[in-house]
Design a protein around this nucleic acid. Structure first.
Lengths: 222, 222
DNA sequence: GCGCAATCTGAGCGCAAGCTGAAGGCGAGT
DNA sequence: ACTCGCCTTCAGCTTGCGCTCAGATTGCGC
């Protein structure tokens, strides 16, 4: 069900932060400090996607990228230092599926990882909850076959809730996943949940349920 | 079975309180006043998680964090003074799995420790007792495949009982684990146990058993 | 069986959590 | 420069949770 992501990043700090952010988004994650056992990991862990730092001790990211391409169908998202054009071009021409320039916001990386996985078909692009269909790739939301117009933020919020459907997510989780914030402003989430509700529940039953003191769930029944 | 937690906190009082709260939640705990013998502890005690104060004599929390990351797979929860943004960011970018700002409620710390351990896969996320399923992560409780609506407090209480299933827990233990209270008000626990029972035992057998003079147990049979 | 302590539970109140309409500010497009 | 739409902040309102209390009930010790 949930996709496997291998993170290769020698900076402990970043690697750990990335790993836990991805875990919170529901992926199964393994973290390595270098690419030494890459071949073994590809065989054993069989990741659907690899998050790859460019600057690594031993073999660098581009060498590892080739290894991955040669022996696995995994997607690759590269972390390039300082969004420099040279690296960028090289990464793309080397066949990375996407790249993120450091420093980056965790939420952005998670979003790109999800996008690549969807493109590869490893993650369903559309989620259905009752008569609501959320197509994260196309950015389209339909309720009872009627298209619904959402703003960018509302869409990100709903996509996140859809990815976590059936599970209660706290406002803090939503804040970090959708906005990448660290500071806690519950009302910001409330306002946008309210907006989403107004649009998707206008002609139908309640889908975004409030769980007082805990957060929100996207769920059809009850 | 039970996870090992290493607490490094120079304030005796706080360290002792944290340790005993964690012990009451079923963890095996060791408490150190500084990080001098951290490497030894990591090797001998092999903690699954380290609760780390930021302000410490000798090496500070961030230095210790690096040591832990380098030589152990343990999770890390940091205690940052006064929830200040700088510390907070530094903690995250430093790769802590979570952080708790002082002053904090014991129950919150325990909850976060449990959450991190679950994420790391050291503790099962769902507990099953008879036909009752408690998924602490998703915040969902089911009885005989029927979802049950609990309030935040009721859920925390049930999650705690589920984590201790089969073991008799006293009202004091429940109070510190769920509320973080120091003062003893048995009725508070009784009221909420009553509420939980009403909801989860409405269409089924008794699960939360009273053990007069001792406390409560979550158990299927008898 | 009696008495007392432990436990249960219904009721009500206060307040924090959550909702939402309104307004300000900012960026994009014209 | 102006407009338009979106994001965010703010403030007042509503809701329902959690706590306290008190009377009922249970079970243990003698």
């Amino acid at each position: 069900m949930s996709a496997r992501v291998l993170v290769i990043e020698d900076a402990e700090a970043i690697g750990a932060a990335v790993s836990s952010a991805l875990r919170e988004s529901g992926y199964e994650v393994q973290h390595r400090l270098d690419g030494r056992q890459l071949e073994t990991d590809l065989g054993r862990f069989r990741p659907d996607l690899v998050v790859l730092d460019v600057m690594l001790p031993g073999r660098d990211g581009f060498q590892l990228l080739e290894v991955i391409r040669r022996s696995s169908g995994a997607g690759v998202v590269m972390l390039t230092a300082r969004d420099g054009v040279p690296d960028r071009l090289r990464g793309l021409s080397g066949g990375a599926d996407d790249y993120v320039g450091k420093p980056f916001v965790l939420a952005e990386l998670v979003a790109r990882v999800s996008a690549v996985l969807r493109r590869l078909g490893r993650t369903p692009s559309t989620v259905q909850v009752g008569d609501l269909v959320v197509d994260a790739d196309a950015g389209v939301v339909m309720r009872a076959d009627q298209p619904i117009e959402l703003t960018a933020t509302e869409l990100r919020l709903l996509v996140y809730l859809a990815a976590q459907r059936g599970r209660v997510v706290s406002k803090t989780q939503i804040l970090t996943a959708v906005w990448g914030y660290e500071d806690y402003d519950p009302n910001l989430v409330e306002v946008h949940v309210s907006a989403v509700r107004r649009k998707i529940e206008e002609h139908g039953t309640r889908l975004v349920h409030t769980v007082r003191g805990l957060g929100y769930v996207l769920r059809a029944e009850e």
